[in-house]
């Protein structure tokens, strides 16, 4: 399922690795550094949080790992492949097969039902056969508690329900890595806890690595490893022994 280049071996390779990765945003003649020489290794199967104030570079780091953006310097490896060197077509294929995304605004496709939204990456990206597709969508909707809403459109759902569907969509293709940018920012306290619990459960069940960019202390408290980012630099790395399974 995970596509690795022949020349790259999985053995002893972290799932995510950044080597001196930097990113500058250029506006006219002004170059603004968003990330500075980041070196980072993330092992598979972790629940990780990037925390820091707005504009610190959390989302930029997530975008580089998710091969949505390219670093202006350094290299980024995901699952053994150098994603920073991929062209648009290859990186789209790589994302579709290896990375799931959960967004702050849920980003469900409004013209598709809950079922079709979860099914979308399996049809349009992975070309999964119909029977297997049905099985996986049904399974994921069951797991996120949205099976009974399968026929509804996003506009008919609450914020919490939409984010559960987004979790199901991110996990249905069975990615090794899920990237979530402020996934609880638009949810109330109780719903946010439910969604975090759901992602935690999914992480355990599918051994998926979750990386969050967040301000939310609820998520931070659940993370096994917390990276604090300030002014484009990782200023602190700490393990959270108390992490896991709080609701």
């Amino acid at each position: 399922m995970i596509e690795l280049k022949d020349s790259v071996t999985r053995i002893n390779m972290p799932l995510v690795k950044l080597e001196n990765a930097g990113k500058n945003y250029i506006t006219g003649e002004i170059s603004t550094p968003a990330l500075k020489e980041i070196n980072l290794s993330i092992e598979a199967g972790k629940f990780i949080s990037f925390v820091g104030p707005s504009g610190s570079g959390k989302t930029t780091l997530l975008n580089l790992i998710g091969c949505l953006d390219r670093p202006t310097s350094g290299r980024v490896f995901v699952a053994g492949a150098e994603v920073s060197a991929m062209d648009r077509k290859t990186s789209a294929k790589f994302r579709g097969e290896n990375i799931g995304f959960i967004f702050q605004n849920f980003n469900l496709i409004p013209v598709l039902t809950v079922y079709e939204n979860v099914e979308y990456p399996l049809i349009m990206v992975q070309n999964v056969q119909p029977e297997e597709r049905r099985r996986r969508v049904t399974e994921m909707l069951d797991k996120v508690g949205m099976a009974e809403q399968a026929h509804k459109y996003p506009a008919q759902l609450s914020g919490g329900q939409k984010q559960r569907v987004a979790v199901a969509r991110a996990l249905a293709p069975r990615p090794r890595l899920v990237l979530a940018d402020e996934p609880t920012a638009n949810l109330d306290h109780a719903t946010a806890y439910k969604v975090i619990g759901l992602m935690h459960a999914m992480k355990k069940e599918f051994d998926t690595t979750f990386i969050f960019a967040t301000h939310d202390q609820k998520i931070v408290g659940e993370a096994e490893l917390i990276y604090t980012i300030e002014d484009g630099l990782i200023t602190e790395t700490r393990e959270n022994a108390a992490a896991g399974g709080k609701k």
Binding site: R88, K93, R95, G96, E97, I99, F101, N105, N107, I109
Partner: peptide, 16 residues
């Protein structure tokens, strides 16, 4: 545009 960004990030190939 936002929707295009979503489907592209999910991995929809540019040709699709």
């Amino acid at each position: 545009i936002g929707e295009i960004g979503t489907i592209a990030s999910i991995g929809t190939p540019p040709s699709k």
